[in-house]
């Protein structure tokens, strides 16, 4: 006898599949933002669930800051290929060379420069919708965002003037030049993502698991030593057993000391965690409204 009951992950899954199919049904030229990170890995599985046995009816898009972890890019390319999807990569490097993205004097972070790079890619391919893996539990500004997040012709989010979103009736109508960002994982928490990865037996990049890495202490966190983050003369380089909890750029992603080698270990670790996932990202800490400001400017 069937019980006609869905558990919480099945609820989140069917909600997300419904949203993906609404995108396929309502937009002419959608794209799926795929970074190789854990959230977008879930997005890809949801896309498979939404669209198989047909092909996934949208290309994958990634903005490469040039500061990515190499493990992440390797995984991104391989996964896209396995799924038979078309992967479009647009580099901040190229956008700078073309004058699309202009670094401020001394600006090392590529965080802000991703925005014009993304907007240029949207224009180049005339995408009318980008599906992203952002979740509302990540950050206070995201907690305010709709599933279907309208962006004007400058890519800007206007948080004070969002379209009401009622039941599961999403208004995807746009005028030329406008764009929609759609977030099927809005209601997922970090824990849900890992439980889903476990349930679906999804592969994730190796850097989510415990490994040994050289790191330096900066701004209260351990940053991985790399060509882009060379140790300063006075800095103490340590060899640590670490993993990444959230993947941003290599220059801003704090490493967490962890022995977790399996998805189950990670779930146990998050269950006991006393800081949020974004607590390990320097880019969001800079001001209380950091994310809101970036989203208003056109960020994911």
């Amino acid at each position: 006898m069937q019980s006609y009951h869905l558990d919480h992950l099945q609820h989140l899954e069917t909600e997300a599949i419904h949203i993906m199919r609404e995108v396929a049904g309502e937009f002419e030229r959608p794209a799926l933002l795929f970074s190789g990170g854990k959230d977008s890995i879930c997005l890809l599985r949801l896309a498979e669930k939404a669209f198989r046995p047909a092909d996934i009816p949208m290309p994958f898009l990634n903005v490469d800051t040039g500061h990515h972890f190499p493990e992440l890019n390797e995984f991104r390319d391989r996964r896209a290929k396995e799924l038979g999807g078309k992967l479009i990569v647009r580099k901040v490097e190229d956008a700078i060379a073309q004058g699309i993205a202009v670094p401020a004097p001394g600006e090392v972070s590529r965080n802000r420069l991703q925005i014009p790079t993304l907007l240029a890619a949207i224009e180049e391919f005339r995408f009318d919708c980008c599906i992203g893996g952002a979740r509302r539990d990540e950050e206070k500004a995201r907690a305010k965002e709709r599933f279907f997040s309208f962006r004007d012709s400058f890519g800007q989010w206007d948080p004070k003037n969002q379209r009401p979103e009622i039941w599961n009736l999403y208004n995807g109508r746009l005028n030329p030049g406008e764009n929609m960002r759609v977030f099927p994982l809005s209601n997922w928490t970090e824990m849900d993502v890992w439980e889903y990865i476990q349930r679906e037996k999804l592969e994730v990049p190796s850097i989510y698991f415990s490994h040994t890495r050289k790191a330096v202490r900066r701004g209260g966190q351990w940053l991985p030593v790399s060509d882009i983050v060379p140790p300063k003369p006075n800095e103490d380089v340590r060899e640590l057993v670490v993993r990444v909890r959230t993947i941003g750029d290599i220059i801003s992603t704090g490493l967490v000391e962890s022995p977790a080698t399996t998805t189950a270990d990670i779930i146990a670790e998050i269950a006991a965690a006393r800081v949020t996932e974004r607590g390990s990202r320097a880019d969001d800490k800079s001001s209380e409204a950091a994310m809101e400001d970036r989203k208003k400017a056109g960020y994911f």
Partner: peptide
Amino acid sequence: DGLRAEREQGITIDVAYRY
């Protein structure tokens, strides 16, 4: 109250979701 305007004015303008 995650928006700048909300904190400034001490009011809630739009729905915030928490888990």
